[in-house]
Write a protein that binds this DNA or RNA. Structure first.
Lengths: 241, 241
DNA sequence: CCCCTATGGGGAGCGCTGCTCTCGTTTGTT
DNA sequence: AACAAACGAGAGCAGCGCTCCCCATAGGGG
């Protein structure tokens, strides 16, 4: 009977989900390397070896957590973008940046797992690349639509990409996340995007300690500056910050 | 006698240095969490417990490696800056950025130890903060001198720092690394600086994989764009990249 | 000069980890 | 009812950080 076979599979799916959930809780408190399969097993009330029926290795468990993390971050970024006026490209950029930062502050260990130093010995499988692009896709769409709408203040003069390799890379960027955008804008978009994550990394990993304390306010300014770098319109009534 | 007492202390210092050196080699191949005191002891030909006479814990060993790492990075950054014409502030900025990236690519695990996600449970002692500032000080001096020389194209209009907290933070930045620089420039300098590290982090930690392959060339463009964000002069004969 | 104490070694051991193997039980299928 | 696949538990292996204890020895004080 189908329902009985499903019953077995359903309890399996449920246990798999429960293990991942407990693991995610441990990850939030202990970090990726502190995550212990045995501790998860204890909390599940099962033997440590039994957990290996569900996740063949700690790396597989980490992969699940990574994918979930990318999806969670992607979702909040998508929602942040969706909550904005579609024509307000500058506002969407700011909303997306703040969504990333807020999520990172709320889930520091998970963020570190996604954007921090990779766990040694861990090789990210192909399943992670699609979720990993969710936030970037949102960002790319903003730039793309801003460009299409003519809302982008493209800096004067041609870009002079120089090496042909950059053009190749930008073609890939265009194809995957930022259709229709010229090279010069795409380069700056990549710069701005990495800049946001660099900023958040500095904040999260302690580089700002004892120097920059009013992070939210400074983040606003950095996001505005990086947005201006892409050519996105500034918030109304703001001077050149 | 003094020399005999010194003899004992000298062999101790030598052994301490040797342990740290082997540990740094292991760090380069295995990463920080993969670094094993027992493995270092084996390679030293001594028992694992004996190593604890020199480093009371793995964290202390890591602290040494972190300090050494900051100093090594700081040195190459200082040398890169020193190799430039002092008046060519844009060139100095580019040289410093490339020095950071080159060192990071040459010592990825060490870089991750400095600027990646912190090792869980590890609390950086106060001894690390001074070495950690060496590269930032070089960067700040460039901006400071460029501003002093009037070489900085400060963006039109006041800045509108808004929150007073940002002004506080910028005062601290000014005092520690960037004397004489106005808030608007300091904010952009922080943005650019974190942007460089964000870029390098993306490259090093795999975020660019399968998308951006011609990293050196794109890094040039990003550095130029971030330099322009601060107002540093562009390389002669380059268009607005 | 001789003793004696601090210093630096080695070995054993504790509790933890990821992971494997085996063995018995349960569950769903034919 | 028989059988195979799935599942759980326990023991065990090798590794880890770290501690404790014991011993040799080197250096300094009487």
């Amino acid at each position: 009977m189908n329902s009985s076979r499903t019953a077995r599979e359903r309890v399996r799916a449920e246990l798999t989900r429960e293990i991942a959930e407990i693991a995610r809780r441990h990850l939030a408190t202990e970090g990726a390397v502190g995550l212990s399969l045995r501790a998860v097993a204890r909390e599940m009330g099962m033997s440590s070896s039994a957990v290996y029926r569900y996740f063949p290795s700690k790396d597989d468990l980490l992969t699940t957590l990574i994918i979930d993390g990318y999806n969670a971050l992607g979702r909040v970024v998508e929602q942040a973008d969706a909550g904005c006026d579609r024509a307000d490209h500058g506002g969407r950029w700011r909303a997306v940046c703040h969504a990333v930062r807020d999520w990172a502050l709320a889930h520091p260990h998970e963020y570190a797992l996604l954007y921090g130093s990779p766990v040694p010995g861990y090789q990210a499988p192909q399943d992670t690349v699609a979720p990993a692009m969710r936030d970037t896709i949102v960002f790319g769409r903003i730039v793309s639509e801003a460009h299409e709408a003519g809302a982008l203040t493209v800096p004067a003069g041609p870009m002079g990409t120089g090496a042909a390799g950059v053009a190749e890379d930008m073609a890939r960027v265009r194809e995957q996340v930022m259709p229709g955008v010229p090279d010069a804008v795409a380069v700056r978009a990549v710069t701005a995007w990495t800049g946001v994550f660099g900023w958040i990394g500095f904040e999260l990993f302690g580089q700002f300690n004892n120097v920059i304390e009013h992070r939210a306010a400074l983040f606003d300014h950095s996001v505005a500056a990086l947005g201006a770098l892409i050519g996105l319109p500034r918030p109304v009534g703001e001077s050149t910050a």
